[in-house]
């Protein structure tokens, strides 16, 4: 089988099973699957059965103007060497997503981080507790409407140094 054929075969296979799904291969050994929220765990299971054994990462993008979060699941296959990205968009006002732990166990930590940094709720993840932040009281810091400079001024810069305090 030629190298480019593998991506093409996989593309046709996915399109024949799933409706409302776009599949493209922007270049060699890359596969982009854009699907809807409800189908995502079936797509992941489907890809896992076809050699995509490793979940490398989950990333999240805040599309503030479209009022959407985009979740991207990065899968990789050791057999064919293809890197597949499964993308989906969820509502920004009420960001709820089904947990991917039943398919890939290591999704737990990735989902925990996205929960902390973007505030996306993952249903079925048993351990959504703070990972990097210590007693965070503000909106999640990776959201685009979070003003980092203003937060730094309000939290760290207002504390006077000892000299300022003693000199009044």
């Amino acid at each position: 089988m030629k190298i480019m054929d593998r991506e093409e075969n996989l593309r046709e296979e996915i399109l024949s099973v799933f409706k409302n799904t776009e599949v493209s291969s922007p270049k060699r050994k890359r596969l982009t699957v854009i699907t809807e929220k409800a189908l995502i765990s079936e797509v992941m299971k489907f890809l896992k059965d076809r050699g995509f054994k490793q979940l490398c990462a989950i990333s999240c993008i805040d599309w503030i103007e479209e009022k959407e979060f985009e979740l991207i699941y990065h899968l990789s296959s050791f057999e064919s060497g293809i890197h597949a990205m499964v993308k989906t968009k969820i509502d920004r006002e009420n960001p709820v997503m089904k947990s991917m732990i039943p398919v890939f166990t290591n999704a737990q930590t990735y989902e925990r981080e996205i929960w902390e940094m973007f505030g996306v709720q993952f249903e079925g993840n048993p351990r959504l507790i703070p990972l990097f932040l210590d007693r965070w009281r503000d909106i999640p810091p990776f959201r685009k409407d979070f003003d980092i400079r203003e937060y730094v001024k309000r939290t760290f810069d207002v504390i006077p140094s000892l000299e300022e305090k003693q000199n009044g």
Binding site: F132, P141, I148, R149, V152, F156, S161, L162
Partner: peptide, 16 residues
């Protein structure tokens, strides 16, 4: 990290 949300600026405000 002067504008980081999670880094302490000026440690001498908390310990000498």
């Amino acid at each position: 990290y002067w504008d980081s949300y999670n880094t302490i600026k000026r440690v001498d405000k908390y310990i000498p």
